[in-house]
Design a binder for these strands. Sequence first.
DNA 1: CGTCTAATTGAGATGTGTCAAGCGGTGTGG
DNA 2: CCACACCGCTTGACACATCTCAATTAGACG
Lengths: 229, 229
Amino acid sequence: MVRTKTLDDDLGAKINALKTSHIFRGLASGEIKELALSAASVRYPKGSYLFNDGDSAEFFYLAQEGLIKLHKESYSGKSVTFIIASLGDTLNASALSIKKHFLSAQAITDAKVLRIPQKAYWAFVSKHPTIAIEILSLTAQGLDTEYNRIVDLIGEEVELRVVHSLLALANKFGPNLMLKREELANYAGTTTETAIRVLSKLRKKGIINSAGRGAIAISNLANLQNYKR
Amino acid sequence: MVRTKTLDDDLGAKINALKTSHIFRGLASGEIKELALSAASVRYPKGSYLFNDGDSAEFFYLAQEGLIKLHKESYSGKSVTFIIASLGDTLNASALSIKKHFLSAQAITDAKVLRIPQKAYWAFVSKHPTIAIEILSLTAQGLDTEYNRIVDLIGEEVELRVVHSLLALANKFGPNLMLKREELANYAGTTTETAIRVLSKLRKKGIINSAGRGAIAISNLANLQNYKR
DNA sequence: CGTCTAATTGAGATGTGTCAAGCGGTGTGG
DNA sequence: CCACACCGCTTGACACATCTCAATTAGACG
């Protein structure tokens, strides 16, 4: 029966998708299957929002395709990007115990995610305490990252912050970043103009190439790593 | 036998101390006892360090008396305070899965803590999955706090940041803060001088009183909460 | 009473945001 | 297929918030 077959394929795809996440790595396919059964694959067009800061968290999200920006706006309207999520990244793993999203999620390219109702997610984690530890580990790492970002924000000048942002992004996405200058600026916590000025300086030093609109190519990673002024 | 008696008292005190933490609230005394058995009560004089950023995390710490500052220094030597811990606060709960401390802990008054070897802490948490969830909840809250701090740092001016810092501290310690101007400044992510200038302004508006050295008294909390300029 | 640390205020330097203008590539509609 | 419009990128000039440096005052403590 054709219909059954496609459904099975679908389930298999979901199981594989779940396995791309660190937090489910330790489990056997059989175990994951239970969770996959309540998962839905959903597409979001570029620019659209998956959820907003402050919304009640109804689903657990796992990125499958595209880039999703996790960000938040200040009272005065300035947007800060915390995470750019891609394949295998959870968008709100720690929302387990928290009722509200504390960031907004916006697709910056066309994107696809796996979406699981909180209740099913919670039940699954309760049944597999190992996963709770994985989530904790992930959340703690995130906390460490933010501590470092704050230290940077307070103690270092913008130039270095932009460099650090580039390094963090390159570490995750490789040396060819498909990001607008504005995205980089939001990530580094500065303005587009200032980010561009830093990039111009880096270009003159041969550390990056202008790779056209919406792209930044790091050509000399080593020099970026021990960058001084 | 006197010796046994004092030991028992000691154990009882440790059990009670553990109960002051949110993460152990759900457990019965009998269950906590196991953990208390491997706990040691340790004193640290004002100014001394419990551990340093980057050290391997050998113990789990719970604050019992005094104030302990969790902070980190930037490469350029600027110190940022993240948390001021007091009775019942864990200093490194999420270090469960992390091998290294990611903040430094320094006593800002004479302090007393409960100290538990990582191994015992880990074993206990493994045995009580509920606690892992509590720790996760705590860590996630911490993450939310830091997200908000970053948004503040990037989007708002110092004046407002100092006000927010005062509110956060007052929320935890009450309107009479026993902190030096310098501590407040580190917490708000600014310099001592700038913090003082903001405080002077607030004093002129009747929102705070100068309560002498090492103290800040908030006299009008309501006005502080809806503070504008 | 003297010393030491914290608090306070001033004046100046400067990094970074803001505003404004121009350029260039890309896509779209006539 | 060309032309026009839009959007992202880039650079310049200027304003200003905040840091830095310096000097003074006040309070605590021996």
